[in-house]
Write a protein that binds this DNA or RNA. Structure first.
Lengths: 133, 133
DNA sequence: AATAAAACCAACTAAATTAGTAGGAGATAA
DNA sequence: TTATCTCCTACTAATTTAGTTGGTTTTATT
């Protein structure tokens, strides 16, 4: 198991925006440059964060991004979910592609998967962006 | 975040071995056939489980695999770690490849990563193989 | 009005990882 | 000596991740 650069970059950028909370917007170019991240790649990461309504944007010269709410109201779990995608809905498949069981079945694999998911959720749920730097 | 087939197959196979605990060894061909998994792929998955000393093998005709200890003494966390690998030791890199910070630093990204890791560990630590079916 | 700086958008490429194959060698019971 | 098994290495195919390329649109500033 690993942490993708997507999450790493996204989190770092969100921490930058948190530091800038209540000030003017921060542009992608500034963040990318100072964090040493490919600007174009960061663009797509920001698209995810925006879809999840965690950030807002202003177009045009002088524009940029800012958090859509106070850092204390932004949950780390939301950020990770937005960046990495939720734990995939799980299915056991036979070789023929037929679904044998789903998330709601109570086989061992599903049970373990659900535990891991709630384990992650519980650990991040009450951690908010203002706690990071 | 997703659960690879490696984990799915590996867990299913371990559950099969647990059902067979105290009986004769189960061969790869039997497990692969009944679980509808590529035998050659399962072979490599079993190699990981063996390296982790979770299973033992007997070569030759009539041979096969069995758990190395009672299912109640096998932790699900051990299985997942063996199959999926531990959470990768984490580093922040600059574009030039220079390490900026490591697992022991206390930046936000590392803090989140460590939380996720302990979240998973805590959720699986006291779940053993005999609880699954 | 022209320009520059910004978000936004789509399609491509490169690298890495995952999932699986192919083709054996060596061990062992029947 | 043969069939059944583990074990080993090297390959391929598919998918995902990590970017790149080349724009369009929006907006403040000159």
């Amino acid at each position: 198991m690993k942490f993708s650069t997507k999450s790493t970059y996204g989190l770092r950028a969100m921490i930058r925006l948190a530091e800038n909370w209540k000030k003017e917007s921060l542009s992608l170019s500034v963040i990318a440059k100072s964090e040493n991240i490919s600007q174009k790649y960061l663009e797509r990461i920001f698209a995810r964060l925006k879809t999840a309504k965690l950030i807002e944007s202003e177009k045009g010269a002088g524009g940029g991004y800012k958090l859509s709410r106070s850092p204390s109201k932004i949950n780390i779990l939301e950020i990770i979910d937005a960046l990495e995608g939720k734990f995939a809905p799980f299915h056991c498949y036979t070789k023929s592609g037929k679904v044998v069981c789903s998330t709601s079945c109570n086989c061992g694999v599903t049970l373990v998967l659900n535990r891991i998911q709630t384990g992650i959720e519980d650990s991040l749920r009450n951690m908010s962006l203002n706690q990071l730097k």
